[in-house]
Simulated scan of single mutants.
Amino acid sequence: MAVSKRLRYEILRRDNHACRYCGATAPRVKLNVDHVIPTSLGGSDKPDNLVTACVECNSGKTSSLPNAEPVADVEQTTFRRADELKRAVAQPIGNDIQIAFHAHLIAVWQWAWGKRTHTEPTEEEAQEAFEGLALLADGSDFTSDRLTEIAFKAGSARSTDITRFIEPQLSNEQFSLGADAVNRWSTSWEAASQDVQPSMDELAEFCDDLHHLVLLLDATAQRDTVMAAAARAGQARDTSITRHLSALRTVGGES
C-alpha cells in the first residue's frame, strides 16, 4: 500500500521538517518521506518505519490540521535493524541470498504469530526474533526447511526465544528403535485390554516420553531393554516407558 499524502505530511510535521539522517531543513534542501527498512526487506508503511529524508518530496500539507496529534515516532530499534541490514548487504559474500532468507524467516515468524493470535508483535519482539533467527541461520548447518519450521513454531508460540524450538534430531537407529517400541507397546496394550486400542492422546503421551528417552540412549546397545520396557508399559496400559525401563536392570529382561 502506497504512503498517502496526508501521512507524508504527518511524518514531515513530526520530524520538524528536518532530515532525520543529517538534520538538514527546508527550504535549504528538498525533503521526502523515506522507509527506514525498505519494503523489499519487509518494511511497512506504518509511521514507525517512515522518516523525513533529504530528497524530492510531495507534501500533503493541506490534508492535515495544524493542531492534530503527531503520528507515532520511529523507534530506535527500527533504525538499528535497518543499519544491520544495510551493513549486511554491503558485505561481499552471498549476502543477497542471505538477507533474503533472513527476511523470509522473520516473515514466517510474524505470519505464524498473527495467524495464532490475530495480533502483531511489538517492534522490540520482532527485532529480538530477527536477531535470533539470523544468528541461527548463519551459525548452524540446519536446512532451510528446518529453519523455516523453527521460525513457524516460535511465531505460533508467540516466542522470541528461537533456541527453545530447536529439537535434537533422531539418528536412523534411534528412529527405528522408536518405531519398533511404539509397535510393541501398542500390541501389548491391546493384548492386555482385549483388543482395545490406546487413544490418540495416550499414544501421543507415550511417543513424547519415548522420544526424550531415545535421545539419551545408545539405540543399538540398549534396544532389547527398551523393547522390554515398551512391552511392560503396554501390558500395564501405561503411557510412560521411562519408569518401566528403570525397573529393568539387565538387558534381556521380560519382554
Rank of each mutant, 00 (worst) to 15 (best):
A2R: 12
V3R: 11
K5N: 11
R6D: 05
R8V: 01
Y9R: 08
R14S: 06
A18M: 05
Y21W: 08
G23H: 02
G23T: 12
G23D: 03
R28T: 13
V29Q: 05
V33K: 00
H35C: 04
V36G: 01
I37L: 11
T39S: 10
L41I: 05
S44P: 03
K46V: 02
P47T: 01
V55T: 04
L65R: 15
N67D: 13
A68T: 11
V71F: 04
V71N: 00
A72E: 12
E75R: 08
Q76K: 04
Q76L: 07
T77H: 10
T77M: 09
R80K: 11
E84Y: 13
E84Q: 12
A88T: 01
A90F: 00
I93L: 14
D96S: 11
A100K: 03
F101H: 14
H102A: 10
L105E: 01
I106H: 00
A107M: 10
A107N: 15
A107E: 15
W109Q: 13
W111P: 08
A112V: 11
A112K: 13
W113I: 08
W113Y: 14
T117G: 06
H118E: 15
P121I: 15
E123A: 14
Q127H: 11
G132C: 02
L133C: 00
L135W: 01
A137F: 05
A137K: 06
S140Y: 07
D141T: 11
F142R: 15
F142A: 12
T143Y: 09
S144Y: 13
T148W: 06
E149M: 09
F152C: 04
G155E: 01
A157S: 12
R158N: 08
R158G: 04
R164P: 03
Q169I: 07
S171N: 06
G178R: 02
D180I: 04
D180F: 02
D180S: 13
A181G: 01
V182I: 06
V182S: 04
S186G: 02
W189H: 07
E190T: 09
A192P: 04
A192S: 10
A192G: 05
S193T: 12
S193C: 06
P198E: 06
E205I: 00
C207P: 03
C207R: 05
D209S: 07
L213S: 00
T220Y: 12
T220C: 02
R223M: 02
D224Q: 10
G234N: 02
A236S: 14
R237V: 09
I241C: 01
R243W: 07
A247V: 10
G252F: 03
G253Q: 15
